[in-house]
Amino acid sequence: MPEVKTRTISYSTAINEALHEEMERDEKVFLMGEDIALSAISPATAGLGDRFGHERVRNTPISELGFTGAAVGAAMAGYRPVLDMRRIDFMMLAIDPIANQAAKLRYMLGGQVSIPLVIRAPEGGGSQNGPTHSQCLEAWFIQVPGLRVIVPSDPADAKGLLKSAIREDNPVLFVEYRALYSLEGPVPEGDYTEPIGKAAVKREGSDITLIGIGSQARNCLEASDLLAREGIDAEVVDPRTINPLDVEGLAGSVRKTGKCVIAEEGHKSGGVGAEIAASVQEAAFGALKAPIIRVAALDVPVPVHTKLEAIVLPSTEKVVSAAKKLLS
């Protein structure tokens, strides 16, 4: 296999590159969102307005319902809109066009239309923004058939999966963890894509499987380093896509280790972790040597105060202690 040349860039630069390259490749791709035209305000969309013009990099009024519905219409009429929601919390004002329209139109109209729409939804806590600016809501959307839901955790996946999402002929919710924007990592040079619906092993190990979603994939990697110092060899798996979910990819790791911790930043009840735990035990119950444990945000809103926020949100330490509990 030829060696892939990489360079080190940040998660937000990776997203920016994907947008540049896909807009260059396909003139039907255009961007809409609040405050996306000014580079200084929006690093992920920096430079796009200057390069492609403000017809294709379009600031919107604060009308989430209006411009999301408009994106669905433009997609029906042959364009490939990419929305920037700024924060997933704001997207709650646009649930109808996402859940009732984009996800269902193709089915409801007997296959007469396709909806090639990408909704970039930055989310997550850890920066003292409080209950309505810190939520992780991807779990809501795995309940909606017809949507793809993608949650990348490092720069290479962010770029490769966003490029796949833009080329996909179906509506995609592309969740970006704001806490990861400054994370740097190796990213291949040139054009490449990552497959939708395929989990990735981020660290190989044999004692326990740590499944981490978004920001928690990073925490699981950090946790695996700490566990290694204590002689525990953890495998870290990132589902990357949670609809469709690569159940076999996840179950394969659990069959190897027999033990599993699932970490997510969303709330525990009805979370993505609950879905993964159920799916993994359906596929690999015989291999499990202990119950699956979930590490997630506590079932209260995310408070502003640093100390209180840390109590509510998951962390590397919480993943480590869950893993140790499981192995004890």
Binding site: G66, A70, Y79, Q101, L105, V113
Partner: peptide, 28 residues
């Protein structure tokens, strides 16, 4: 709906069709 005739659908959620119409107008 009969998209081949320019009919982009009856939409049963009241109000939902108007932002979509704006988007079709934007495409045009």
């Amino acid at each position: 709906a009969d998209v081949s005739k320019g009919h982009y659908g009856a939409h049963s959620i009241v109000g939902a069709n108007m932002p979509m119409a704006a988007g079709i107008g934007l495409a045009y």
